[in-house]
Design a binder for these strands. Structure first.
Lengths: 251, 251
DNA sequence: ATCTGGCATGTAGCATGCTGCATGTCAACG
DNA sequence: CGTTGACATGCAGCATGCTACATGCCAGAT
């Protein structure tokens, strides 16, 4: 299990004197991160019942930060509390994946168009750096690292779109899809493909071409959505519902 | 102050035996609602420092549910914790209003178009009922009631658009703007105006005309955004930044 | 064999004690 | 009069005790 990742506290009460391991300031945030990873890695399985008690014991912290962490995850829809029984990791159904990508299309395409109108050499350079990092991560089959740089690439562009709220909403949407079980598909190929899709986006931004940027972004997000949708349906052992696929393309 | 709104607990520890007052199941949720209202009514003012300690005493509950409530509000961006100092109600700057309405345009207009294609007599009837209730509330100058029905009207339409995630995201965006101080503008007129703007939306939906529905929704949301933006700038005593106004119309 | 009721077990939720820390205050010192 | 530094105050954050409740299990009754 993922025990003892969080620093040990003193025998009795009192603030933990160990400096923050993650750079995260509070125990609660560290627990959130641990649980996120545990879900992503499959240590915490959807559908199963868990309890704050046991989790706290495994993580070597008291129940309070665990409880607060789970409450926040519950609010994000990753988990559901059941009164007097425990909490359950929610299963990501394909429907939800489709919905998230529908929203990302609605938000990120216009944002990218706006950002393209404000092409800035520094921005382009930063995005190029992230794209290179993505390719490197794809080569190493390092999915977590790939996801980080993918996210950074998109955030750079969105931030240039100058709507902070939009950036945070899209960030939450990404979080919602990052909790799929570990992807065991032929990621090696898929990662490289996805990285390649970012090239036309960057080119269009560099040229200050809003239309082209929008088109490139649309096709990239739609494609990513299809990949994840296929993966999710495969995990659940069902076929992808046509209306879910349509939802992604209904923009 | 808003003390003693939450049921009194027993002298020492133990679960509060009083049945839930609000219909809300947990104390935490009741506190959230109390604080929401207090912010909206001006009892809790932006910029001021408050503490979980004092708030818990005023509400007659222990610190835990208050803390949890404030953490959730902090995550929603309504409040910010400052280490070892307390928490602060955040001021809604005009910029944020503009951003929220920009997002609502990006999301609600397409959603309304989709929903219009699935016009359903029951839906139209339900929306008409909400619209009537809005007009009645506007007549009574009952802003909270008006807001409830306004929200219900939009949610009916969005739900018909068949993207649950979109409904919840838009709901969060609404929450983010509902924390403006009590509006003391000539609401009486503004409320009636806003209600009237819903009529063309309803008509277009009834006709199953996606284009018209989208246009009506766009102009309604843009107008509402302008109103709130003007109100926010008036509160802060500054003029509305042109780029904020542009943001709303940049869709 | 089937039903039933009480009890053991484990849980969420709330109350409360405790600690380190940020800040304000004020006295002693330059 | 300005500076500094020890102390008082009040805070968030964590640990932990306690209660009501949901559920499973098993003994005893039918």
């Amino acid at each position: 299990m993922f025990g003892a990742r969080v620093p040990r506290h003193r025998s009795s009460s009192g603030r933990c004197p160990v400096l923050a391991v993650d750079g995260a300031s509070s125990l609660t945030e560290q627990v959130i991160e641990s649980v996120r990873e545990a879900i992503h890695s499959g240590e915490l399985r959807p559908g199963e019942l868990y309890s704050v008690y046991r989790l706290a014991a495994q993580l070597n912290v008291s129940r309070t930060p665990v409880r607060e962490a789970m409450l926040r995850l519950a609010e994000a829809g990753m988990v559901r509390f059941e009164r007097s029984r425990g909490f359950r990791v929610l299963r990501r159904d394909p429907r939800e994946i489709a919905e998230v990508f529908h929203l990302r299309l609605l938000l990120e395409v216009p944002a990218a168009r706006i950002a393209a109108g404000r092409a800035d050499p520094a921005l382009v350079e930063a995005m190029r750096a992230e794209l290179d990092a993505m390719r490197a991560a794809a080569g190493d089959h390092d999915e977590p690292r790939f996801m980080r740089h993918d996210r950074a690439f998109h955030e750079l562009l969105l931030t240039a779109g100058a709507n902070r709220k939009l950036v945070s909403v899209v960030g939450n949407l990404r979080d919602a899809t990052m909790t799929l079980g570990a992807s065991t598909l032929d990621r090696s190929r898929a990662l490289a493909d996805i990285a390649a899709e970012h090239e036309p986006i960057l080119t269009a931004v560099e040229a200050g071409d809003a239309d082209a940027t929008g088109r490139a972004m649309r096709s990239h997000i739609a494609h990513t959505g299809e990949l994840l949708l296929a993966q999710a349906t495969a995990e659940n052992g069902v076929a992808a519902a046509p209306e879910d696929v349509d939802l992604i393309h209904s923009t």
